[in-house]
Design a protein around this nucleic acid. Structure first.
Length: 494
RNA sequence: GUCCCCAUCGUCUAGUCAGGUCCAGGACAUCGGCCUUUCACGCCGACAACACCGGUUCAAAUCCGGUUGGGGACGCCA
């Protein structure tokens, strides 16, 4: 059995978006599963729209996701000679012909067909020009494109789609499509096939939007006398209005970069993407990398399109709730040392990282993450909601400030008094700190919650969090005492 | 307009190929409850779907036909 070879061929005309990422992921999974290779090929033949920035965005996005490739990146424009050779071969064998129709003529016919509600295809004007006419037009330097001559055959043209099953069409339905521009530059349909043949691609897993291209490309493989690879078309990812998602109409939210910049864990995002349109056939939702590679199959890709369920301007969910759910799951369950590395990057970016967190305070660092990660949703939360564990410049939210602090003016004396008692404590332990707080509340004839919640707010800035006494111990006596004594400033703030 | 594809809770899906075990299971979201010093943690529960019509069959989410709905393609883009 020959090695399986798959490719991911993005056109660098925008950032890597989730649809592209999912396509890359499925190709990667299948390559890994079959012990094959994944090739990255940048299809940059649209020189007007391709950009270096976009190439970088795509490569960075794949790297962040952890989708690695065995060959490439190759650049399609580097193989222009191959594409031209192929077109000349097709011209020579009569599988293609020159077409002298101008863009304007074509556009006029297209508009007319559209208006008359007639089929939109090319009318084959130049398909059977005589040798003399062609020679005359060439002599007159009339620019020409090269069109593929779709064979006049009865019967059906088709291929076996790994996901959709047998796909067929009649030959007459296929347009004589253009393979070389009038400026001599070859076009996608041809380049893509020539490159796949040269790269010995065995499986082409791509979006459903390519289905009609595939029919045309099957013809190209035949004319180029190359073996047909296995095709599989993935249903598209749609938005909540069931429109194809695109960077252009949906913006940042569909760019992979958005998830990197918003504290998502790469594998969690892959796991989410993998399950968007695929399932193992059971209820399993979380897959390790090895499990997903082992269990993934093309046949189990859902035939209907999946909806990326994000709501614009939702105050609670910045993206599809399920994507966040996967992230939370990994945030809470992954090895703490792994999480430690990810959070380190976040802390470094905010200038909150201290070298001792990796040496003598490593135990403290990891224990602190263990304590606070349960309530967090993204890596960003460690430097925002969890900032008080690492620095004094945390923000006090308005809601807890109002509810837990400002409501009780007496706290201005209570908390400093509590601080004094904590300072004198022989044993600064869970039991002792709690005992002291509760006894003090009793003396004051108030509910312990008043003291505890005020402490939480003053010490962490938050309305909610782990058990208060765990927090006290984690943050440490000195800092806790200092923050308790500083309560006055919150009242002065208002 | 022409061609292709698809159709189970709001969303992701299991079940469809090999019809009965499915008055349809899981997850997210939502709502309610419990726990608690707090909570967007955890636990428990509720709500909620086989698009429609016909056919085949003792029996249909499952097979067949049609309708409707949705998506995609129809470029000298990729």
């Amino acid at each position: 059995m020959t090695e399986t070879r798959l490719r991911f061929p993005p056109s660098p005309t925008g950032y890597l978006h989730i649809g592209g990422a999912r396509t890359a992921l499925y190709n990667w999974l299948y390559a890994k599963k079959t012990g094959g290779k994944l090739i990255l090929r940048i299809e940059d033949t649209d020189t007007g729209r391709s950009s270096a920035e976009s190439i970088k965005g795509i490569i960075d996005g794949l790297e962040w996701l952890g989708i690695d490739y065995d060959e490439g990146p190759y650049f399609q424009t580097d193989f222009e000679a191959d594409h031209i050779d192929a077109s000349e071969k097709l011209l020579a064998t009569g599988a293609a012909y020159k077409c002298f129709c101008t863009k304007e003529e074509l556009e006029a016919k297209r508009q007319a067909a559209l208006a008359a509600k007639k089929p939109l295809g090319y009318d084959r004007t130049c398909r059977n020009l005589s040798i003399e006419v062609i020679a005359a037009k060439e002599a007159a330097k009339i620019p020409a494109v090269v069109r593929f001559k779709v064979p006049d055959r009865c019967g059906l043209l088709g291929y076996d789609d790994k996901i959709f099953g047998r796909i067929e069409a009649t030959y007459s339905e296929i347009d004589d499509f253009v393979i070389v521009r009038s400026n001599g530059k070859p076009l996608y349909l041809l380049c893509n096939v020539v490159d796949d043949i040269r790269d010995r691609i065995t499986h082409i897993i791509r979006g459903q939007d390519h289905m009609t291209n595939t029919l045309k490309q099957v013809l190209l493989y035949e004319a180029l006398e190359a073996p047909l690879p296995i095709f599989g078309h993935m249903p598209l990812t749609l938005d909540t209005k069931k429109a194809k998602i695109s960077k252009r109409s949906h913006g940042e939210i569909v760019a992979v970069q958005f998830y990197r910049d918003n504290g998502f864990i790469p594998w969690a995002f892959n796991n989410f993407l993998a399950l968007l349109g695929w399932s193992a056939g059971n209820d399993q939702e979380f897959f390790s990398k090895d499990e997903l590679i082992r269990d993934f199959s093309l046949e189990r890709i859902n035939k209907s399109s999946a909806i990326f369920n994000y709501k614009k301007d939702d105050p609670k969910f910045i993206t599809d709730p399920k994507a966040i759910y996967y992230n939370e799951h990994y945030l809470r369950s992954m090895a703490i040392s792994e999480l430690g590395k990810m959070v380190r990057k976040e802390l470094e970016a905010e200038n909150l990282w201290q070298e001792c967190y990796a040496s003598d305070k490593e135990r403290w660092y990891l224990d602190t993450l263990t304590l606070i990660r349960d309530r967090f949703h993204t890596l960003k939360d460690f430097t925002s909601l969890g900032r008080a564990y690492f620095a004094d410049d945390f923000i006090i939210d308005a809601k807890p400030l109002e509810k837990n602090v400002l409501k009780f003016a007496e706290l201005q004396t209570w908390l400093p008094e509590l601080a004094a008692r904590y300072e004198k404590l022989n044993q600064f332990t869970l039991e002792e700190t709690e005992r002291v707080a509760r006894e003090f509340a009793e003396e004051l004839s108030i509910k312990p919650g008043i003291l505890i919640n005020a402490m939480r707010t003053v010490v962490t800035g938050q309305l909610a969090g782990p058990s208060m006494f765990d927090i006290i111990l984690t943050i440490g006596r000195e800092t806790v005492v200092r923050r308790l004594r500083d309560i006055e400033k919150f009242f002065n703030l208002v």
